[in-house]
Design a binder for these strands. Structure first.
Lengths: 337, 337
DNA sequence: CTGAAAGCGCTTACAG
DNA sequence: CTGAAAGCGCTTACAG
């Protein structure tokens, strides 16, 4: 129960306004009264009451635009749920959130959307696309002192922007460890990844390789294919892999294309272990049916929630800005659903 | 951006006080003005601003006592961290939290502490102990309309109380599934559990057995011992088990006594897999050294945080009271630390 | 049955 | 250099 500014004023024998000048380091106050006030504030551990503050600012909305390439991608359902939860929680603090969704990885599309929202928002949360035009646009917006937050994926060329999402390299290492544990350290492994244009997907493959090299000399990485998150492509790639390597007995799917891959695995018959990423309707069904043994989750709800909460923390709570919020990575099996 | 009570007053041509009477269903208002006001509130989707509300109530503290048998139990470090985080977040809403810690499972101790805090708190969060005296005391406090919240473990004999913690039976099932996956479906399994007086520990064993029965006919459960969360006991029990069953090749530790168990396993030599529960300093070290393959975590930070947040949600946000908040269960391997 | 006022802790624009 | 006042959205005690 810290002291209020009003009480400080009484103790110092001055008005509320003067106390405010001292605390905020505003001009128009003599050095001695300022010192007297700050000493009292210090002594009684004054911390401004955020509710009093929030009430004042509730008139001036904090405008936030969220741009996600989420259309057709079930991963983002929970991300959006987290955003909506935060929206409800912080509504009374003046948070005004607009959500824009698009499909795919077209950089022009994203740049266009950024242009559209720029004028009417001080905070822009987006799932960035790895493209120089996107990077340039983000840097331009930062110059206009827009607060940029990257959600669920990250551009390494951007500084002074918060990233909220998982540690992709680490998630790959975990995948490698699971592969080792479930296979008993001996397997012919095939990886179906999303796109090499998605930095995160590439890092996952890298992480798996790293662990294989370090710990599992008897696991042979037969090959890696890209599905571009498309089931048909995944199916054809996996079919092809089995044709050339009938001894594949472990498949890791690092991104989308799960159903296509599983179809090819089912047709192949034999005891083939499969692991995936994320907890979507598709992976849940596959876990329950036994087609998939384990999946690595990255807390999508929390990603959405914290992307908004970070704004609350810096603006309202005046906490220092972070540059990374890594959500937890955890392994789930069927019984955990 | 919902309408304010002030605007409703203006639209209805009445004073703020009258609007309040209508909204709160308080006496002293004619049916027709009431209806007129409620219609306007409805039309503009009026929702009271919690910040305005909170400021009024910040004078009347919400007193919360937290009683944990956490002394000497590192699991509770994160639980406490979650409580402290919530304390900071809700301080300005008038939340006054006092923490009381004790050691062990002595019911008298807990009853005594409950007596002590009862007069000075409307909300009591505790780690309950399975004992009729505790149950009676809790029921008596509920009769005095104290809000009781059970944290991290649960008494099934108590109703009208929120439980915040993991689903122990489910966590046991997950343990069973891990055992199956890592062993390749073939093992001689031994379980070191905490205490049969701890309902949760018993449920974990039950969950493991259930999965073995359903899915893994070739995993043989050699035996179960109780460590009472004590390393020395765990060591002796495990030694004894190896003496009688030298073929044990998988050990599941469902509670404490991890170091003692691991010591016996190390002395036994051979390729013995070990899995545990929770992410404490001890299990982390064991995961990193490779002595333990995987551990099941139950979000202790969130347990602490949500036990307080639930009070905020019902008192301030006026959300309906829940009776269970199950935190997520997830598997972690060394690379996830 | 209804209104006017004071107050929760803060900020800001204005007056002296 | 300092103070007094109005206002954010709400609640509550009091006056009519």
């Amino acid at each position: 129960m810290s002291i209020t500014a009003k009480e400080i004023a009484r103790l110092a024998g001055v008005s509320r306004g003067t106390v405010d000048r001292a605390l905020k380091d505003r001009p128009g106050i003599s050095e001695e009264t300022k010192k007297r006030i700050l000493d009292i504030a210090d002594k009684y551990d004054y911390k401004p009451n955020i509710i009093g503050k929030a009430l004042v600012y509730s008139g001036k909305p904090i405008r936030i635009s969220v741009i996600l390439n989420s259309i057709g991608n079930p991963f983002f359902d929970d991300v959006k749920a987290g955003i909506f939860a935060a929206q409800e929680e912080f509504e009374n603090y003046g948070f005004r959130i607009s959500l824009f969704e698009f499909k795919g990885y077209d950089a022009e599309n994203l740049v266009h959307l950024l242009d559209e929202v720029a004028d009417e928002s001080e905070h822009i949360i987006l799932t960035p696309i790895c493209d120089s035009r996107v990077e340039e646009k983000i840097r331009a917006l930062q110059k206009q002192s827009k607060n940029i937050i990257m959600l669920s994926s990250v551009l390494e060329g951007i500084s002074n922007a918060l990233y909220v999402g998982c540690d992709y390299l680490k998630s790959g290492r975990i995948a490698g460890r699971i592969t080792g544990l479930i296979s008993g350290g001996c397997a012919n492994l095939y990886i179906i990844t999303g796109s090499s244009n998605h930095k995160g997907h590439a890092q996952r493959v890298e992480g798996i390789k790293e662990i294989m090299k370090k710990n599992y000399p008897s696991i042979h990485l037969v090959g890696v294919s890209e599905s571009n998150d498309d089931d048909e492509t995944a199916y054809l790639e996996m079919k092809d892999a089995f044709r050339n390597h009938p001894d594949i007995d472990f498949v890791y799917i690092t991104a989308g294309g799960v159903n296509g891959t599983l179809k090819a695995v089912a047709e192949q018959k034999g005891d083939i272990r499969v692991c995936t990423f994320d907890d979507t309707e598709i992976t849940r069904q596959a876990l329950i049916s036994g087609a998939v043994q384990a999946t690595i989750c990255q807390q999508p709800f929390e990603q959405g929630y914290y992307s908004i909460k970070s704004i609350f923390d810096t603006i309202v709570m005046k906490k220092e800005a972070q540059n990374t919020i890594h959500t937890q990575l955890s392994i789930k099996v069927d019984e955990a659903l």
